[in-house]
Design a protein around this nucleic acid. Structure first.
Lengths: 108, 108
DNA sequence: CAATGTGCCTCGCAAAGCGATGGCCGTCAA
DNA sequence: TTGACGGCCATCGCTTTGCGAGGCACATTG
């Protein structure tokens, strides 16, 4: 998958995922990898900066949770502002797809 | 339209347009602007570098044409290699859309 | 003559993904 | 007991790409 296409779609993906419930970083990566059948492996170098940025703008929040074995995980959860932003992003996404489709032509 | 979403979609757009026949830069910008109803205005700073790169890889070729009034235009035309690349890009695009759609959910 | 439109282009900047790298700590096999 | 593996966090420098601004040249129109 072309790296450039992904640009800008990452926040949309993250917000959408977190809309289903809180998740932690590693889990996000694995979930994406599995759901796409391995087609898309979200990289750590892309994930964490994106997550931190989303948190800085308060679209998501994070909290540490200790597992039974004593290890820690950092969970991220969608905030109200993030949900609103997600809705806007979705609209934009659909608009974007329509636009490209108009030039490329309908699905083969 | 979010600039980041566009990244990587430009070559696809250009190749698709040139698939309809040779065009020159200014014409491309106008065509995109009109077809999208002004939603998307392809910028020169994005267009020309992309065009030149496509030409460097021989996906497109260019030639100057003199108009009746003596002015010159540089036309770009799709090459065989570009057509093949376009086909591959289209596939990738559809795959990409499917992927995001899978997370975002179907069209509202 | 001036303003506008056509038409080409480049430069420096910002943003985002990538690969590499690093660190911490359980678990399980050798 | 030691070492490899995997879960889990994160950062750094590089590259790519679009953008805004700028520049140049010429034709038409008022």
């Amino acid at each position: 998958m072309d790296r450039e296409l992904l640009k800008g779609s990452t926040p949309l993906l993250l917000l959408s995922l977190l809309c289903e419930g809180p998740m932690y970083g590693y889990q996000i990566i694995e979930t994406v990898r599995q759901r796409t059948g391995g087609t898309y492996t979200l990289k750590e170098g892309a994930l964490y900066p994106a997550l931190h940025k989303l948190e800085a703008t308060e679209f998501i929040a994070s909290y540490w949770e200790t597992q039974e074995n004593g290890r820690e995980r950092r969970y991220y959860s969608l905030q109200p502002a993030g949900a609103a932003f997600l809705a806007a992003k979705k609209k934009e996404w659909n608009q974007f797809v329509d636009m490209v489709q108009a030039f490329v032509g309908p699905r083969a």
